[in-house]
Amino acid sequence: MPSTVNRVMTTDVLSVGEGAAYKEIVDVLLSASVSAVPVVGADGRVSGVVSDQDLLHKEEFKRVAPDEDYWPPLRARLRALLSGAGPGRRRAADKAAAATARDLMSAPPVTTSPDASVVQAARLMERRGVKRLPVVDGRGRLVGIVTRRDLLRVFDRDDASISVEVRRELEDTLGPAARGVEAGVEEGRVRLTGRVNRRSDGERSARRTASVEGVVGVDNALNWRVDDVVPDHVQWRAR
Rank of each mutant, 00 (worst) to 15 (best):
P2L: 03
S3N: 02
V5L: 07
R7C: 05
V8M: 06
L14C: 07
V16K: 09
E18N: 03
E24C: 13
I25C: 06
V26H: 15
L30N: 15
L30Y: 12
L30F: 12
A32H: 13
S33P: 00
V34W: 12
D43N: 05
D43M: 00
D43P: 00
G44F: 09
V46K: 11
V46Y: 11
V49A: 08
S51P: 12
S51F: 13
D52A: 12
D54S: 10
K58W: 03
K58H: 12
E59Q: 09
E60L: 11
D67A: 14
E68A: 14
P72Q: 10
P72V: 13
A76L: 13
L78S: 02
A80P: 07
L82I: 05
P87M: 12
A92Y: 14
A96R: 11
A99G: 13
R102H: 13
M105S: 06
S106F: 09
A116G: 01
A116F: 01
S117K: 01
S117A: 04
A122M: 09
E126M: 09
V136E: 06
G138H: 02
R139N: 07
R139W: 01
R141M: 03
L142Q: 03
G144M: 07
T147I: 02
R149Q: 08
R153F: 02
R153N: 05
R157K: 15
R168A: 07
T173R: 01
L174D: 01
L174W: 00
A178F: 13
A178S: 15
R179W: 12
G180V: 01
V181D: 10
E182L: 11
G184Q: 14
E186W: 10
E187L: 10
R189W: 02
L192Q: 00
T193H: 03
N197H: 09
N197P: 01
R198A: 05
R199Q: 09
R199K: 15
R208K: 15
R208V: 07
V216W: 09
V216L: 15
L222P: 01
L222C: 00
W224P: 05
V234S: 08
V234T: 10
V234M: 09
